[in-house]
Amino acid sequence: MSTQRRRAARWPVIVLVVAGLYFLLPMVASLEFSLRDVHNTHSFAAWGRLLSYPGLLDTLFTSLWVAFGTVALTLLLMVPTVSWVHLRRPKLKRFVEGISLLPLVIPPIVLVNGVLVVFQDAPEIVNGTPLILVFEYVILALPFTYRTLDAGLSAIPLATLVEAARGLGASWPVVLLRVVLPNIRTAVLGAALLNLALVMGEYTLSSILLMQTFPVWMVSTGRTDAGVSVAVSLLSLLIVFVLLFLLSIVSGRRTRELRPFTPSAS
């Protein structure tokens, strides 16, 4: 019995070590690649070139404002919608979920095809600026957004909270802003982070719509100076990883404090 148990405990460790090495290899390779200099030497030359590289800061700035726009618009649209469905029309849950998951069925490269047609005669401000990206990224992020907010709202006694607030005379906007929102802040933060990550890495729509975003810059720069693109992509992967990791620590702590027996939201 004890030998069986010990054997059972050993294989996961082996699998984890092998997988860890496999997944770290391209990251280590990226680091080495970005440090390469001429004649088989290594230096921080590529990293030093980064900040002065034409286009990096501009496109990074564009992507960041698109990201914040997407996060703001997503929350503005989806927090009231999902709360409304939970409170007033639970039967429509499947319907809203169905629509929210549709972007999983429609490849971005197909969506962008239609976007080009629908908005070809739209005002310059919509289709000539990254604003169109904000509108469409809200759509691309819908599956994540819906699931995260739905899980967050299912985990709190929403009806009781809202009834209490309404009974004390709070208006609907106040209820949303000061009762619902604070109670699902981890879910909101999670949705916001997933949106941010999606926008900072999205290439299909922005390249076809000819927008100069960060991933588009990365690809075009990579054709002439691979070292810089490898460095930047490693950096952006690391930043998003750290953000998600911090979020998981924060949310883990909160779930433990509040509801010790609830399985983690999936």
Partner: peptide, 17 residues
């Protein structure tokens, strides 16, 4: 990160690998 975020980033990571 790897599943949702980095289509372009992974391409470069593998060019380096």
């Amino acid at each position: 990160v790897l599943a949702n975020f980095g289509g372009v980033q992974l391409a470069f990571a593998f060019i380096a690998t």
